[in-house]
């Protein structure tokens, strides 16, 4: 291709600074795939999505879940989503921004959901993840504990777990930990 490079290099020398094109932002393949995921979202009434940075930043968004059954009925929980430019090769990073008493979500907001880590596959999408998160509220499970204490209580004393969840959601202490109201 050297002949071509030679021609181009000579053209370039002549046309030094002749192009005044505005700088262009590159849209990553991840952004494009996300655009598809987002435009096809089909969320249950209990889940709501919002875009804090406006309509042109889909890579950072928030999802609010209001469970309509189970232990967490009446609560409102906010999750932040961060999408990588190589999405869906890499899973979204999801954190729970509402402090929650939950066996599978720790007090820092880390979420133990298999499809967010070891079981993520590029065929999955944002919809799957949101449904997976919703499922954590209807079926919290003590077998994948991130909050060790909450998991033990759920396993050994579901009644106490229920009242602990209520107390946390209403705003108050469970053990040494204070939870802000989220009802």
């Amino acid at each position: 291709m050297i002949k071509l490079f030679k021609v181009k290099e000579k053209q370039r020398e002549q046309a030094e600074n002749a192009n005044g094109k505005p700088p262009v932002k590159k849209q990553s393949a991840g952004e494009l795939r996300l655009h598809k995921d987002i435009s096809e979202l089909n969320l249950p009434k209990t889940c709501n999505i919002s875009f804090p940075n406006g309509k042109d930043d889909l890579m950072n968004f928030e999802v609010t879940i209001r469970p309509d059954e189970g232990y967490y009925l009446g609560g409102m929980f906010l999750f932040s989503f961060q999408i990588s430019p190589i999405y869906p090769h890499e899973a979204p990073k999801v954190k729970c921004k509402t402090k929650i008493y939950h066996p599978n979500i720790d007090l820092e907001g880390n979420v133990c959901l298999n499809i967010l880590r070891e079981d993520w596959k590029p065929v999955l999408n944002i919809n799957t993840i949101i449904y997976g998160l919703y499922h954590l509220f209807t079926e919290p499970n003590h077998e994948d504990p991130l909050n060790h204490d909450a998991a033990a209580v759920l396993r050994d004393n579901p009644k106490l777990f229920e009242s602990n969840v209520r107390r946390a959601m209403a705003g108050g202490y469970v053990g040494q930990t204070f939870f802000t109201r989220c009802i």
């Binding site: 890499e90 599978n104 720790d106 133990c112 298999n114 880590r117 993520w120 994948d144 504990p145 060790h148």
Partner: peptide, 12 residues
């Protein structure tokens, strides 16, 4: 894909 350990394995 990068190997990602389940968070609960890390924690427990």
């Amino acid at each position: 894909p990068q190997v990602k350990f389940p968070l609960c394995t890390l924690a427990e």
